[in-house]
């Protein structure tokens, strides 16, 4: 027994030595503090399994703008999700490699950490499950995750970042999905004029903005509610229909007839920057959207009760429309879009 102990100690020493070696090159990769803005909802329950770290976010940002994600190396995530436009592209429908036109309008990327559903139809509940979709979709990047890894695995700058973010240089699909999600979680927009007025940081609404806020609360806030300016419900509000057979709105996922052509209520944050509007960019301007509500929307069996019970329209005077638009522009976060 006496002999065994020294022997064990030596073995343990050896083991701890090799551990120490690892730790010597282990990198300090602190979690980023999740600053939840006042009044925002709790983060999506999956965020706690993939908390953003300093290098995870940095890696995700680099991957986000890497064109090698597409089959012909022409399109990155940031080709359609352009920061200056609150991560949208200004086009009616997303455009992928070889000019292929996607099914829907590119959604903005902001405050995703707080969302329970992703995409127009809520097809994803967990952000880490989303990046694969554009990578493999024919009308987007038309590639595969192993093709992407094959292209970037000999890139020394990635080896360094994967090591910093995840402890070793291995590039795996899960690490790619996680780091992109971490980058997206870090994109929080809560510094608009509206926020500063609300937080009493010395700014105040103009008369028109204040009137617009009033109308907003009367006629819009039942759907565009909470500090996210969406209640995250799915509704058919009688917008012009996308006749592509791949489109069924929320029913595409649920198969439920009553969800047919229902779409997630979009956030109004940074709405000034995300034209055109609607699930496939039906409206070029905010004024066009408001005119449409005023003139009356399409009838449908499952038209949202708010429209069904109010003559299928939201009556608005021209002055009200102008004030509403003035208010919506107070939701622009100039620092967020770097304009």
């Amino acid at each position: 027994m006496k002999k065994i102990i020294p022997l064990l100690s030596v073995v343990l020493l050896l083991i701890s030595c090799s551990n120490t070696d690892d730790e010597m090159i282990a990198i300090d990769n602190p979690e980023i503090a999740l600053n939840i803005p006042t009044g925002f909802p709790e983060p999506n329950e999956f965020v706690r399994f993939n908390k953003p770290t300093k290098y995870g976010v940095e890696l995700g940002e680099k991957l986000f703008s890497d064109k090698r994600f597409s089959a012909d190396n022409t399109i990155s995530c940031s080709s359609c999700h352009i920061q200056e436009n609150a991560f949208t592209d200004g086009k009616a429908q997303g455009i992928g490699i070889e000019g292929r036109i996607g099914l829907r309008n590119t959604p903005s990327i902001q405050n995703l950490m707080f969302m329970k559903f992703y995409n127009w139809d809520g097809s994803k509940l967990q952000l880490e499950n989303q990046p694969l979709v554009p990578i493999i979709t024919h009308e987007e990047m038309d590639s595969s995750i192993l093709d992407v890894i094959g292209k970037i695995q000999n890139d020394a700058s990635y080896a360094d970042l994967f090591k910093k973010a995840f402890g070793d240089a291995a590039i795996t699909p899960e690490r790619i999905y996680k780091s992109i999600a971490q980058f997206e979680y870090s994109l929080v927009s809560a510094n608009s004029k509206y926020d500063k007025v609300k937080r009493k940081e010395g700014e105040s609404f103009t008369a028109g903005e204040a009137k617009g806020f009033e109308i907003f609360q009367q006629k819009c806030a039942s759907c565009h509610s909470t500090e996210l300016f969406t209640d995250q419900s799915f509704r058919n509000i009688g917008f012009p229909l996308n006749t592509n057979s791949n489109e069924a709105g929320r029913a595409r996922v649920t198969g439920i007839t009553a969800d047919y052509m229902s779409f997630r209520v979009p956030t109004l944050r940074n709405i000034e920057y995300t034209a055109p509007y609607g699930s496939f960019g039906q409206f070029p301007t905010l004024k066009a959207v408001l005119d449409y509500f005023d003139n009356g929307v399409l009838e449908a069996e499952n038209l949202d009760p708010i429209f069904k019970n109010n003559g299928s329209s939201i009556p608005l005077t021209e002055e009200e429309k102008n004030n509403l638009i003035a208010f919506m522009k107070t939701l622009s976060d100039t620092a967020f879009v770097k304009q």
């Binding site: 057979s245 791949n246 069924a248 029913a251 595409r252 198969g255 007839t257 009553a258």
Partner: peptide, 19 residues
């Protein structure tokens, strides 16, 4: 038909009308 009950039955590309 384009109503939600007979939506695109010759072109089923979503969960709608699929089951």
């Amino acid at each position: 038909g384009t109503g939600m009950n007979d939506n695109a039955t010759p072109n089923v590309h979503t969960a709608a009308q699929m089951v």
